[in-house]
């Protein structure tokens, strides 16, 4: 609905319509990076929880292992909580980043 898309036209209407005020663009950018971070949490978790694969069996004390594993858990939960809260907003589900604007 943002102007008739004319492929042979001189300018692309899609980029033209997306170019909003600077601070919105910046908020949008922040939001994308936030989503990137959310995407990375499970990768981080998988990496950290893969470390026990290298532990020597029968050598590592269970208490240390326990503390490490639950420590990772706390980090993941905390990180996920912070990031999803920061994401906030009603248009959190917008996958393609084309949202015209968000609350500020």
């Amino acid at each position: 609905m943002s102007g008739g898309p004319q492929p042979d036209g001189g300018q692309r209407p899609s980029t033209g319509s997306r170019a909003g005020p600077v601070f919105l663009e910046r908020a949008n950018y922040r939001k994308r990076r936030l989503i990137d971070a959310i995407r990375l949490i499970p990768v981080l978790g998988a990496l950290l929880w893969a470390i026990p694969l290298m532990w020597a069996r029968g050598d590592t004390p269970s208490s240390a292992a326990l503390l490490y594993l639950f420590g990772v858990w706390v980090v993941l939960v905390g990180g996920a909580a912070l990031l999803t809260r920061a994401l906030g907003g009603a248009d959190w589900e917008d996958d393609n980043g084309g949202a015209p604007g968000e609350g500020g």
Binding site: R57, S62, L66, L67
Partner: peptide, 16 residues
């Protein structure tokens, strides 16, 4: 924690 380490499951024994 100390008692965990001294118990029969006091060492990391999970196969990778």
């Amino acid at each position: 924690l100390a008692r965990i380490d001294t118990s029969e499951i006091g060492r990391w024994q999970v196969a990778p």
